[in-house]
Design a binder for these strands. Sequence first.
DNA 1: TTGACAGGCAAGTGTTCACTTGCCTATAGT
DNA 2: ACTATAGGCAAGTGAACACTTGCCTGTCAA
Lengths: 94, 94
Amino acid sequence: MVDVFRALDDETRRLILDGLAERDGQTLFEICTMLTTRHGVGSSRQAISQHLAVLEDAGLVASERRGRTKVHHFNREPLAAIARRWPLTEEKPP
Amino acid sequence: MVDVFRALDDETRRLILDGLAERDGQTLFEICTMLTTRHGVGSSRQAISQHLAVLEDAGLVASERRGRTKVHHFNREPLAAIARRWPLTEEKPP
DNA sequence: TTGACAGGCAAGTGTTCACTTGCCTATAGT
DNA sequence: ACTATAGGCAAGTGAACACTTGCCTGTCAA
């Protein structure tokens, strides 16, 4: 189990989440091309695959196989857990 | 400038934020004793000092000198920036 | 002033992490 | 069947990080 904070401690992984937040359900190659064309990330395909594995292990990304591709979905629940740990406004549940 | 996510990628630093969230304005030694007694953290004083420097450099902690002590305050603004980057609910500003 | 207290600075060490390289598996199209 | 496509596995490398050790600076009380 990878920690959510460690998964977020990488700009490439954060850019991946940005891309999935803009358009959910992208494959590995779509994410690779998006990172290189729009954000200038020059990492290899294997590097992005490892990043996706970290994000998936942290629960931030869920994936499903579609034939020979693998689509990735952004799961915001771990971010909600962070917001719950340090609430921005002091409100108590009734 | 230290990244906020890198500052959060450490359990000891997160426990420091927990302690400051519970009682704000603690000194280095108060934080040290709190970590050892309540969370079983066996790190040295210098280690905690370096952790506080990272948190302060990331903007998560602000400090002020009080005589020979130094009180630390929890600043939640960087956490709000994270919540703004990946909103949990799709709401648009009016 | 002297000693104790609170904290800071800097070098050294072991570990972890991101990335690459090379090879392998499985699915789709012709 | 054969080839190209989409992805996975594993070892190796260089850099960043957490922590320690040792010494130094400034502040309060006696």
